[in-house]
Amino acid sequence: MKLADLSLAQLRQRLADNDLALRTGPFVTRIHSPMPQIADGLLRLYGEFRLDDGKFQDFHVRVGPPTGLRRWLRPQINFWYDGHSPFKPLPANHAFALMEWGLNWCVAGHAHHYLMLHAAVLEKNGRAVVLPGDPGAGKSTLTAALMLSGWRLLSDEITLIDRDDGLLVGLARPVSLKNASIDVIRRAFPDAVIGAPAYDTHKGTVAHVRPSADSVARVGEKARPAWVIFPRWREGSPARLSPHSRADAMLHTASHAFNYSLLGGLGFELNAALMDACTCHDFEYSNLDDALRVFSELAA
């Protein structure tokens, strides 16, 4: 059963009753929330995702108002992981963004049966590109644009590498856009479905792009890594790939990974195997159309 098979009223009821188990790639999360924004956001962005039978969940989360006197002064929202709240409460209208961060936290903090890099991953014609990116480098904008022009999205934030075969595992969860990039994507892809923006978060304005139906339908297909590309948006720059040393790429992904040192020797082996399988590039761009052209030549 898909999430979109529920009506909004049914979805709200199931969220309020702690009766919704959502599958995103290898993980099943039970989501409990009385908040209308959570139901609205899920229906808008997660409609194609499958619901699980609810026997076994990897994560149990709740998004709701904190108790205490403050809630009468200024409505707030908090995130609980099985009764424990890892974050400080946020203003109530950030509920959906908080849930997204919370779901990332669940994976990054627990899924040590993968090597987890801080990078986006997309796939085309059986070959995957890993996009590590410093904040503000334009990684998510490029990820959203690639997905909306036919690349299959595996993940926007967390690259999962299977420790048994070194292949990339997808989540296909929505792409998080910040500030100006929200309008960039809206203009370039008028048909893209984008969730309600959360204003004035610690990352500025945040809004999420609905993953393509193909990405969600094929989330279970692992992908073979082919490129590691470090994107950087720079005003006026032509879209251009240039070689990036593998050794440096390996150091960069290791130091930006969620659990590289936790995996010890295995983390090194998996990261080294990733670099062996890939060619590494820097990529500068200013215009999305030009950027997409370079990527489609790469995948051809």
Binding site: F56, H112, S261, G264
Partner: peptide, 21 residues
């Protein structure tokens, strides 16, 4: 153990090994 459970056990052993080291 069921397939859904096994990764959690693997992850927990990995964490313990790291902490021990």
């Amino acid at each position: 153990v069921p397939d859904a459970v096994r990764p959690h056990l693997t992850a927990a052993r990995t964490l313990a090994a790291k902490q021990r080291q």
